[in-house]
């Protein structure tokens, strides 16, 4: 699907893992998902974030591969390691600035998200972005996707002095703030600090 872009908006993610479930249905990595969905800090927040391969312009994983097993296609999609070449050394796992590749023990192979190029090459959207019910993962024409969003797409990331440009865009809020969220912050206390709705016995030892 030429002319389409892949967008990740972590703020939309509801942690449902539909993407993980759908990714694991792929014939090339049966039952294994190449997507990660994590709670950032479940004890303190319901926030979750999905992570797919960012498909770097100059993929660090490929640069550090001693076996020349990782290739970027003309479509800009960085593939999983080539099976005949991969020596499962994990250099790519350690080097990736986004923490995406995984070496899978059973096939002794680095596997990662390949943006479903089997689907996109026949006019279908990647599986995760198709099913995602919150469209935290979305795939489509840039005009269409950006038009409907208040967020700003970013695809340049600074790691120290290293600038990494990626095929995948991350949506960022216009202004970022650090939040410490507690349900108590949204609850009412009387001026003397008491909470008449709360039964004292709740906190009896």
């Amino acid at each position: 699907m030429f002319g389409n872009e892949f967008y990740v908006d972590p703020s939309r993610c509801i942690g449902c893992r539909a993407c993980v479930a759908a990714c694991s249905e792929c014939d090339s990595h049966r039952g294994q998902s190449m997507i990660y969905v994590d709670y950032l800090d479940r004890q303190n927040s319901i926030a979750t974030a999905p992570m797919v391969c960012m498909h770097c312009d100059e993929p660090t994983c490929a640069l550090v591969c001693p076996a020349d097993a990782i290739k970027k296609g003309e479509d800009g999609v960085v593939r999983s390691a080539l099976k005949p070449r991969c020596i499962a050394c994990s250099n790519c796992v350690l080097a990736c600035p986004f923490g995406v590749p995984m070496v899978h023990i059973k096939p002794e192979l680095m596997m990662k998200c390949d943006m479903c190029y089997d689907r996109t090459s026949v006019g279908l959207r990647p599986m995760c972005a198709t099913v995602c019910p919150s469209q935290a993962l979305s795939f489509g024409p840039p005009d269409e996707v950006r038009k409907g969003r208040a967020t700003t797409p970013i695809n340049e990331f600074s790691f120290g002095r290293e600038l990494v440009r990626t095929k995948v865009f991350i949506m960022l809020p216009p202004e970022e703030t650090v939040l410490d969220i507690d349900v108590q912050d949204y609850m009412w206390r009387d001026t003397d600090g008491s909470a008449p709705w709360l039964l004292e016995e709740t906190f009896m030892d």
Binding site: C16, A18, R125, V131, P133, Q135
Partner: peptide
């Protein structure tokens, strides 16, 4: 198995993990 049904207007291919599995 399943395949998204993108033409259906309500969910346009979207599903939750229960639908996928």
């Amino acid at each position: 198995g399943f395949e998204p049904w993108e033409e259906f207007p309500f969910n346009k291919g979207m599903l939750c993990p229960k639908g996928v599995k």
